[in-house]
Computed example of a mutant assay.
Amino acid sequence: MTDQKDPARVAAGLKATMQNPNVSMEAKHHAQEKLEQMGAADPESEHGVPVRYAPTAGEEHRVHQLAGYKAALHNPRVSEKGKAHAREVLEASGLQAEKEPEVSHEEHMTHVLAGYKAALNNPRVSQEAKAHAREFLESQGAL
């Protein structure tokens, strides 16, 4: 946590990240955001020149493009073929595609049943939906 570290050293590390050519555009954006949160935005180098990472238009487009591929991995409307393509693109760009956690059928059913049980006690759920939840829970022997 930065509140337990020397803020000057943290800022120095973030500035170094922004200047490192081996660091991804996403990491440079993150470093800039952290500097701004710390109140160290637009710091000056030893030569008096402001140090701020400014991506080119092409880099900015690529960052947005990769973010779209990341979002596709979690979008239920994207086909498995589309998700596989998104993983390939992310891995080819040096980013690790997040793998969805594997959940057993039993664990999945536990979550489903918990959701239906929660619906029964939620005042914002319609009576029709509560009736459906009750029927499903009864059919599963969970009521």
Rank of each mutant, 00 (worst) to 15 (best):
residue 1 M to S: 07
residue 2 T to K: 11
residue 7 P to V: 01
residue 8 A to Y: 08
residue 8 A to H: 06
residue 9 R to E: 15
residue 10 V to I: 11
residue 11 A to Q: 13
residue 12 A to G: 11
residue 14 L to Q: 00
residue 15 K to M: 09
residue 17 T to W: 00
residue 18 M to N: 04
residue 18 M to L: 05
residue 18 M to Q: 09
residue 19 Q to H: 10
residue 20 N to F: 05
residue 21 P to G: 02
residue 23 V to E: 02
residue 25 M to S: 15
residue 25 M to R: 10
residue 26 E to R: 07
residue 27 A to N: 12
residue 28 K to C: 08
residue 31 A to P: 00
residue 34 K to H: 04
residue 35 L to P: 06
residue 38 M to S: 07
residue 39 G to C: 08
residue 39 G to A: 05
residue 39 G to W: 08
residue 40 A to C: 04
residue 42 D to Q: 06
residue 44 E to C: 04
residue 48 G to T: 03
residue 54 A to C: 01
residue 55 P to K: 02
residue 56 T to I: 12
residue 59 E to N: 04
residue 59 E to I: 00
residue 61 H to P: 00
residue 61 H to W: 06
residue 62 R to E: 13
residue 63 V to W: 02
residue 63 V to N: 05
residue 66 L to R: 05
residue 67 A to I: 03
residue 68 G to A: 04
residue 69 Y to H: 13
residue 70 K to A: 11
residue 71 A to E: 06
residue 72 A to K: 13
residue 73 L to G: 12
residue 73 L to M: 12
residue 73 L to A: 09
residue 73 L to V: 14
residue 75 N to A: 09
residue 77 R to M: 14
residue 79 S to H: 11
residue 82 G to E: 13
residue 82 G to F: 02
residue 82 G to W: 02
residue 83 K to V: 01
residue 83 K to H: 03
residue 84 A to S: 04
residue 85 H to R: 13
residue 85 H to Q: 08
residue 86 A to N: 03
residue 89 V to K: 06
residue 90 L to N: 09
residue 92 A to V: 01
residue 96 Q to Y: 14
residue 98 E to Y: 14
residue 99 K to S: 15
residue 99 K to Q: 15
residue 100 E to K: 14
residue 101 P to V: 14
residue 103 V to K: 11
residue 104 S to N: 05
residue 106 E to I: 09
residue 107 E to V: 08
residue 107 E to C: 04
residue 109 M to T: 11
residue 109 M to K: 11
residue 109 M to Y: 10
residue 110 T to M: 15
residue 112 V to C: 02
residue 119 A to E: 12
residue 121 N to L: 12
residue 122 N to M: 11
residue 122 N to T: 06
residue 123 P to A: 15
residue 124 R to G: 09
residue 128 E to K: 10
residue 129 A to M: 07
residue 133 A to T: 00
residue 134 R to A: 13
residue 135 E to V: 10
residue 136 F to T: 15
